[in-house]
């Protein structure tokens, strides 16, 4: 391995990391918003919207992100909808992530026993108060591991962005290999940079998980 070469690539990888992080986190944010909206629709059983939400979740959960991105980036312009690669990446990540988050939030809500709601209501709480102070905190606590797994999954999925010409980590590595054929150096750097991006998320997530779940599950 040629360390000098690796060092010379560092600025390129750093820029790619920032781009990947920026799009990745925007996508995660969108995914959380989509998931929250969908799960509220499912929880309140709003007619029509409920069916549409189910359709959306199954469609995006059961097709690869790559295919979805191709649709957004290559097919939509044919009917006059044009988006920048960066926006397409965020939206794609948000859409697939939203489907996963919906399922995670839903299982969290369903893990709270019905009698918790009843005992809150028997204390005179309105359904809204019971949801806010009794159901939601417990649902969030039990969905944290799933949410965390989704976040890491989504940040890793950014590696398909290279196919819609975004200069992310994957794109940079492939590009450099193509030009200079320093394959091992480029791939090692790629792994290191993904770890730089994701290890802190894992650690921070575990800390958050322990704090949120302490009340119910102890240490």
């Amino acid at each position: 391995m040629d360390l000098a070469v690796m060092q010379s690539y560092l600025p390129l990888y750093r820029d790619a990391l920032f781009l990947t992080l920026r799009i990745g986190w925007q996508g995660v944010f969108l995914a959380l918003v989509f998931g929250l909206v969908c799960v509220i629709i499912l929880h309140l059983k709003i007619p029509v919207l409920k069916t549409l939400t189910g359709f959306y979740v199954e469609l995006f959960r059961n097709t690869p992100l790559l295919v979805q991105l191709f649709f957004l980036y290559f097919a939509l312009p044919r009917i006059g909808i044009r988006m920048t690669p960066e926006f397409t990446g965020c939206l794609g990540l948000g859409l697939i992530g939203g489907a996963y988050m919906t399922e995670t939030f839903r299982s969290g809500l369903e893990s709270v026993p019905k009698i918790q709601e009843e005992s809150a209501q028997s204390l005179g709480m309105t359904p809204l108060l019971a949801f806010r102070h009794v159901i939601l905190p417990q649902a969030v606590a039990s969905s944290v591991p799933g949410i965390l797994a989704n976040v890491i999954f989504l940040l890793k999925e950014t590696s398909v962005f290279s196919t819609i010409s975004l200069m992310d980590l994957m794109f940079t590595a492939k590009d450099l290999i193509g030009m200079y054929a320093k394959t091992i150096e480029c791939l090692v750097l790629l792994v290191i940079f993904y770890l730089i991006m994701l290890l802190p998320v894992s650690v921070a997530g575990s800390v958050l998980e322990r704090r949120l779940r302490h009340a119910e599950f102890g240490d």
């Binding site: 005992s119 028997s122 005179g124 905190p137 009340a215 119910e216």
Partner: peptide, 19 residues
Amino acid sequence: SRMREKIGMVFQSYDLFPH
């Protein structure tokens, strides 16, 4: 909800709020 304030209830399975 206002009526239930006047009616206290205790269940077999306690159902305290675990969080």
